[in-house]
C-alpha cells in the first residue's frame, strides 16, 4: 500500500536519516514529494511511502520516537463544491492528474488520493475554490 505523510522536524540533517530509517529498518520505499528547510533548521517534508501497513505503523512510531511530528496526509487539497463552476482551469495544471472531467456531464471531479500537495492548482482557480491544507 501507499500512504502519504507530513513529517515536521527541527534539525536540518534529519531529512536524510528519515529516508535511511524507512528503507533500512522497515523495508519501506519512501518517495520525497516536497521538502522545505528553513534557515533555523526546522522544516517539513511530504513523503509518499510504499510498503506493508504493519511496517508503516512501526516506522511512524519509530520516527515519532526520535522527536519528529508525523501525520498522515489525506484530503489536503480541498475543493469548495459550491464555488467551483467546473471550468477546468485546474485540470491541465495538476502534475498528478488529480482533476478529471466527468465524461458525460463534464463536471470536474477531484481525486484527493492522487494529490501530492504541490500547490500548483490553487492560484489557477479563478473562483478560489481550491485550498491546500498542510
Amino acid at each position: 500500500m501507499e500512504k502519504k505523510f507530513k513529517i515536521e522536524f527541527t534539525e536540518s540533517n534529519v531529512q536524510d536519516s528519515v529516508v535511511y530509517i524507512l528503507v533500512a529498518e522497515f523495508n519501506l520505499k519512501p518517495n520525497i514529494l516536497k521538502a522545505q528547510i528553513e534557515g533555523d533548521g526546522t522544516g517539513v517534508m511530504l513523503v509518499s511511502i510504499e510498503g506493508e501497513e504493519a511496517d508503516m505503523v512501526k516506522a511512524v512510531e519509530r520516527l515519532k520516537g526520535i522527536g519528529l511530528l508525523v501525520n498522515e496526509l489525506s484530503n489536503h487539497i480541498t475543493r469548495n463544491h459550491d464555488k467551483c463552476f467546473s471550468c477546468g482551469a485546474c485540470v491541465s495544471i495538476c502534475p498528478t492528474n488529480s482533476f478529471t472531467y466527468d465524461p458525460v456531464t463534464w463536471e470536474v471531479h477531484v481525486n484527493t488520493d492522487k494529490c501530492i500537495a504541490c500547490g500548483a492548482c490553487v492560484n489557477a482557480c479563478s473562483v478560489r475554490a481550491l485550498s491546500l491544507i498542510l
Binding site: 467546473s86 471550468c87 477546468g88 482551469a89 485546474c90 491541465s92
Partner: peptide, 22 residues
C-alpha cells in the same frame, strides 16, 4: 485531454465551463 505539437504532448483543459454550457 492532450494534443501533440512537434512530437510533444501538451495537456489541455478549458477556461470556460462545458458543464455550465450544457
Amino acid at each position: 485531454g492532450s494534443i501533440e505539437y512537434e512530437g510533444k504532448k501538451i495537456r489541455t483543459s478549458s477556461m470556460s465551463s462545458y458543464y455550465g454550457a450544457k
